[in-house]
Every structure is written in C-alpha cells, then in structure tokens.
Amino acid sequence: MHRLLKQWDASLTPAQFAKLDANLARREFLFDGLKAAGALTLLPATMLLTACEEDRKPDQARLSQIEPWYTFAAVQQQLFPDDGNGPDARGINATSYLKFVLDAPDTDPDDRKFILDGVDWLNRLAIARFKAVFANCEPVEKDKLLHNITSSDAGERWLSFLLRYIFEALLTDPVYGGNPNGVGWKWLQHIPGFPRPPANKRYFDLL
C-alpha cells in the first residue's frame, strides 16, 4: 500500500472508522435546515468546468475556484462513466447532488469532513504517482488510482460514500435534483411509486 494511503488510514481512529461504517449502513441525517434553504440547485458554472474548458487543464487559479467539485466530478465520472450503457455521472447531476448532501445542515459533520478530506488524499496520491491532480490524469491512471485507494480502509469507505450518493442521484425522485426526467429509472426499467413527492413535500419539508 502506498505510504500516503497508510497515512490516511492512520489519520483515523478505530472509533472514527466504526462511525463511518455506521453512517454508511444506516438511514441517516436530518435535513432540518433545508426547509429554509431550498433543495438542490445545480452547481453554478463557476464551480464546474464549462463545456469549452473541458479539453483544457485548468490552471492553479481556476483549480482553487472549482475544487473540490472538479475532483469529485472526475471521480464520479470514473465510477459511473459514459460508456453507452445508460446515463453517466454527469447525466444524473451526480456532482450537484453530492453538493446538496454535503451542504445539508444535519449531514454528520464527521462524514462531511471525511468526504471532503478524501479529495486531498486522492490528489496527493495522484501527484505522487502521476504528477497531476486526479482529474488531470489519463483514464488508465485514474482507474489505477481508484484501485490503489481501495487497498486502504479509508479509501474504500470514501469510494463507498461516493457510490452511495451516485445511486441516490441515479434513482431518487427527480424532485431532489438528480435523475433528471427519470433518466435513471428509464435505464433500469424501474417503475416509481405514486403519488410522487411534490416540490413542497420533499422529506426535509416534513421535518
């Protein structure tokens, strides 16, 4: 295991790991504050690469403006790629959805910190191995990095969190901002129930 991954594992106590596992396992988080704040809005363009920027690698100034969403978006795209089989991470608004989750006032602060810190650990590993931040690595390098980090306890949990919120963006009601026009449901031939939640009866409106 790479020394950075050993350091990442060592930065967390057994109790912190246990808590992360508990939060991965359970129905979690209250979203009281979202009633006032409103639900998911798509990430503003200033926080993601624009279409015309996608072929260029952003400079440091631009990076500082768009991180951690630049890295999250790249990891999510690697986890859920555009491969001709259904929607990709971008097509289900996975990054905006993740921001919605991380911004939620009652998201466990330890989970939030762990997910955000993971960006730094991943990019440090990417620079150590391939001399570029994760998002600027080649696809093969990205996949190697993801395999690398699953060899660590922390890395595996970090990717588990990201996958979990990709599935939420793919398959929860479009009223929450993911799964636009039911694209995830259509792909997996999933029939949603009815009545579906209206915009004024999302779960945080009920709390």
């Binding site: 129905r27 398959l171 929450y176 129930g193 009545p195 999302r202 779960y203 009920l206």
Partner: peptide, 9 residues
C-alpha cells in the same frame, strides 16, 4: 412514494 423520506433519511 419517496425512498429518501421512507428509508434513507
């Protein structure tokens, strides 16, 4: 019929 309300939060 909202999976988030029912079972994920």
């Amino acid at each position: 019929k909202d999976e988030l309300a029912c079972c994920l939060r």
